[in-house]
Every structure is written in structure tokens, then in C-alpha cells.
């Protein structure tokens, strides 16, 4: 037995499809306006940023040519010799890479220590005074917003050239970035242990040690590792302003058109960053997985 679906009355169909068309038209109109605004901004900023599509189109060949130019000439017959030739400066570069990683490590550690010392004052839920909380947050914001390389530029003049300057610059930026994250972690804790410890008469240090720290430590470590990874990247370019690490060598190579050196150092940097990326990701998953 077949059952028939009664069609809607024509006027009802008309009303429904009209409402649908209206709703669609509204979204279309809104999307159109958004698109027009974005296009306007593109044109404006392209004009300000001196975008020259023609130059780009003409010179895009130079990009591929440049890539080809910096790649080493490796032959299958003399592969080992060619690679040795390409990496003629390997011992020096590895030393500089080691220096870069040490800079990142020390910068992260010092910055994390400063952030740790300040973050309890900046977390709104356990801060003792409102002004202290406000001041600590603004300090973090300042350290975070001024790019590390600007600090490095200033410090190079004050302290003289060398990796120490890079470490200090990284440390200050890290203090700002980690301090904000640490304070946010603390603001999201479960307050019950804090309340019970306060009720039992614990002082502030005891409360932090036994109620706050156990809840936040693994997150702190995870953020610290993430920052280390970012700082390795940052330490790699500190040398551009004379603040140590492999950046200086890279800048010299690229400015003087030591083409194969550019690719050799670039490959080393990429491998280091990716290796540290993978290692810290493992460690972080391990950390967060253990405590969950």
C-alpha cells in the first residue's frame, strides 16, 4: 500500500521559500560586506607595503634560482667528498649551534625562575593585594610585548657583544610570556585545597606549597618546555644583532653570498629545531599523561 505525502499549500510553500531566501540573502549580504572590507584593507595595505606584483612575478624566478644557487653541487660519484666539502666548517658550526642551544636553555631557565617568583602575585585568585596583581600583570605584559631582539639591541650597547646578552634578552621575554601563562594556570586551579589549608591555619608559603604547586607543576613544566623550543628558534637569530649563537655566522654567509654555506647552516638550524621540537613534544605528552 502506498501512502502519499500531501504537498504543502502553494501559499505556504511561497511563504517558506520566501523566508529561506530572505535568511540566505541576509547572510550573503553580511558576507559580501565583510569581503568588501577585507578587500579594501588588502588594497590599502598593499599600497602602504609597496607590494609590486610585477616585480614579484619578474623576480619569482630568482627565488627558485637562489634556492638552486645555495644548494651544494653533489655528485653521486664523489658523494662523501662533496658533502665534506659542503660542510667544511662543521666543527665550528656545531660549536655555535651548541652555544645557541645553551643560550636558549639558560634564557628559558632564568626567565622561568623569574616568572615562577612573580606568578603567585599575579594570579587573581591567590594574590594578596589587588595592586600587586595589577603591577605584576603589567610587568609581564611589558616584557612580553617588547620583542626579545629589541632588548638584545639595547643590551648589546650596555653589556657589550656576546652570548650573555642574548641570554638576558631571551630571559626577559620568557619572563613575560611564561609569567602570563603561569598566572593563568594558577587562576584555573581547584580552590578547595587552598581553602581547606587556609582553614587549617596554614600560612601563605605552606598554602602555595601544598595546595597550589601540586596542581600546577606539571603544566608549568610543559609550558617551560614549549618556551624552550620557541627560544631555540629565537636564539638562532640573536646573532643578527651581535648577541651570540649561530645567527652571526648565517648573516655573514648570506650577506657575502657564501651560497653553499647558507644552505649548510640553514639545514643544521632546521634539523636542530625539528629535533628539539620532537623531543620536547614527547616529554610534554609524557609529563601531562603521567599526571592525568
Amino acid at each position: 500500500m502506498t501512502k502519499r505525502i500531501t504537498p504543502l499549500a502553494p501559499d505556504r510553500v511561497h511563504a517558506l521559500s520566501g523566508a529561506y531566501a530572505g535568511a540566505i540573502a541576509t547572510t550573503r549580504r553580511r558576507n559580501g560586506v565583510t569581503l568588501a572590507v577585507i578587500l579594501g584593507l588588502i588594497v590599502l595595505s598593499a599600497w602602504v607595503a609597496e607590494v609590486r606584483p610585477l616585480v614579484f612575478a619578474r623576480n619569482i624566478g630568482r627565488f627558485t634560482a637562489y634556492i638552486g644557487q645555495i644548494l651544494p653541487h653533489l655528485t653521486f660519484a664523489n658523494f662523501g667528498g662533496d658533502v665534506a666539502d659542503w660542510y667544511w666548517g662543521l666543527p665550528k658550526w656545531l660549536g655555535l649551534l651548541g652555544e645557541t642551544i645553551l643560550m636558549a636553555y639558560l634564557g628559558t631557565l632564568l626567565g622561568a625562575a623569574a616568572a615562577f617568583a612573580l606568578c603567585f602575585a599575579a594570579a587573581a585568585n591567590i594574590a594578596r593585594t589587588r595592586t600587586g596583581c595589577f603591577v605584576a600583570k603589567r610587568v609581564f605584559e611589558f616584557c612580553r610585548t617588547v620583542p626579545e631582539i629589541v632588548f638584545a639591541l639595547l643590551f648589546v650597547i650596555a653589556f657589550g657583544l656576546g652570548p650573555m646578552v642574548g641570554v638576558l634578552a631571551l630571559a626577559i621575554h620568557t619572563t613575560g610570556a611564561l609569567g602570563k601563562l603561569f598566572a593563568e594556570v594558577i587562576e584555573n586551579i581547584d580552590m578547595k585545597p587552598v581553602e581547606s589549608l587556609t582553614a587549617a591555619g596554614a600560612n601563605r608559603v605552606e598554602t602555595i606549597r601544598f595546595a597550589v604547586l601540586p596542581q600546577v607543576l606539571s603544566n608549568f613544566a610543559s609550558y617551560g618546555l614549549l618556551r624552550f623550543e620557541i627560544n631555540v628558534r629565537g636564539a638562532g637569530v640573536m646573532g643578527f644583532v651581535g648577541a651570540g649563537g649561530i645567527g652571526q655566522e648565517f648573516l655573514v654567509a648570506i650577506r657575502n653570498f657564501y651560497d653553499t654555506d647558507v644552505s649548510a647552516i640553514l639545514v643544521l638550524i632546521i634539523l636542530t629545531v625539528m629535533g628539539i621540537d620532537l623531543a620536547t613534544e614527547r616529554l610534554r605528552h609524557h609529563l601531562l599523561g603521567l599526571t592525568r
Binding site: N59, R62, Y66, G234, I270
Partner: peptide
């Protein structure tokens, strides 16, 4: 991942060699 691990300043140096100094290389 490879593209991501090259810092923005290094990219800037590379692009300067292609399109010349100026904001276009930065973008």
C-alpha cells in the same frame, strides 16, 4: 614543519635577496 622551523628573520633575509629591501620582503 621544515618551513615552520625557519625563523621569520631568516625568511626576511632570503626574500630580500629576491625582491629587494623594503616592506614587500617583510610581508
Amino acid at each position: 614543519d621544515v618551513i615552520r622551523s625557519v625563523d621569520v628573520l631568516i625568511w626576511a633575509l632570503i626574500w630580500i635577496n629576491v625582491v629587494g629591501l623594503g616592506p614587500f620582503a617583510g610581508a
